[in-house]
Simulated assay, not measured.
Amino acid sequence: MSLTLDAARRILAATRAEGRAQQMKPLSVVVLDAGGHVIAFEREDGASAGRFDIARAKAYGAVMLGMGGRAQMARAEAQGYFMAALNGVFDGKVLPVPGGVLVRDAVGAIIGAVGVTGDTSDNDAAAALAGIAAAGLTGEA
């Protein structure tokens, strides 16, 4: 199974709706496929211009490393040199913090990732998880 544009749009809408329901700051949300390519992106009114790159870096790290942002952050805290080296391998495109969430299909295969930025990293991850669930998929923060 691959992550479709329709599913990506459902994720965007539900992630943003969760942000509004929880009174989060304006969110920016990106959905990547399993190869790290952008399927869809939205930046809410009032979100700063640089949020695309932050959201993409959160999602890119998740899909390229096969681990959500929380696991990446734990790895960075335990082995900063390793994550720094990986970021070099990926041309600085990895941001190892919560808000980068893997997307898994019904059998557990990684089919993409969602990156959310705009509020606290934990809130970003919570909004992403809600969006992924609304699309009938499983998220791994």
Score class of each variant (00 low, 15 high):
Leu86Gln: 15
Glu140Gln: 13
Gly61Met: 08
Gln79Arg: 13
Ala133Ser: 13
Ala135Ile: 04
Val63Met: 07
Ala125Glu: 15
Ile111Lys: 05
Met73Asp: 08
Asn123Gln: 14
Gly115Arg: 01
Ile111Met: 07
Val116Arg: 01
Val103Tyr: 06
Asn123Pro: 03
Asn123Val: 00
Ala133Met: 00
Ala113Glu: 04
Gly66Asp: 13
Ala130Arg: 11
Val94Ala: 01
Val107Gln: 12
Ala113Arg: 01
Tyr81Leu: 09
Glu140Asp: 15
Leu86His: 07
Ala74Gln: 14
Gly99Asn: 06
Asp124Asn: 13
Gly139Thr: 06
Ile132Met: 11
Asp105Gln: 09
Gly108Glu: 07
Gly80Arg: 12
Gly131Ala: 09
Ala62Ser: 14
Met64Gly: 04
Ile132His: 08
Phe82Pro: 00
Gly66Gln: 12
Ile132Thr: 10
Gly61Ala: 11
Gly131Lys: 05
Ala125Pro: 10
Asp119His: 09
Pro98Leu: 03
Gln72Met: 15
Ala106His: 13
Val101Tyr: 01
Tyr81His: 11
Leu95Ser: 03
Asn87Ala: 08
Gly80Glu: 13
Gln72Lys: 06
Val94Ser: 06
Asp105Phe: 10
Thr117Asp: 03
Glu77Cys: 00
Ala84Arg: 12
Asp122Glu: 15
Met67Gln: 14
Pro96Met: 02
Gly80Ile: 02
Gly108Ile: 09
Ile132Val: 14
Glu140Leu: 05
Leu102Met: 10
Gly66Trp: 11
Ala78Ser: 15
Leu102Tyr: 01
Tyr81Gln: 09
Gln79His: 15
Glu140Tyr: 04
Met73Trp: 02
Gly108Asn: 05
Ala128Gly: 11
Arg104Leu: 14
Thr138Leu: 07
Asp122Gly: 06
Gly115Gln: 03
Val89Phe: 09
Pro96Arg: 02
Phe90Ser: 06
Gly80Ala: 12
Leu86Trp: 11
Ala109Cys: 05
Gly92Glu: 11
Gln72Glu: 13
Val114Arg: 05
Leu129Tyr: 00
Asp122Ala: 12
Ala106Lys: 11
Phe90Tyr: 15
Ala125Ile: 05
Val116Trp: 03
Ala128Val: 11
Glu77Asp: 15
Asp91Ser: 15
Ala71Pro: 01
Asp119Ile: 06
Phe90Ile: 04
Gly112Cys: 11
Ala109His: 10
Gly88Tyr: 09
Tyr81Ile: 05
Phe82Thr: 12
Gln72Ser: 10
Asp122Asn: 04
Ala78Glu: 13
Asp119Gln: 05
Val116Gly: 03
Gly136Asn: 09
Asp119Trp: 04
Ala133Ile: 00
Ala106Tyr: 00
Gln79Thr: 13
Arg75Trp: 15
Phe82Cys: 08
Gly100Pro: 12
Tyr81Trp: 10
Pro98Ile: 01
Leu95Arg: 02
Gly118Trp: 09
Gln79Trp: 03
Ile111Gly: 01
Ala109Gln: 14
Val89Met: 11
Thr138His: 12
Gln72Val: 10
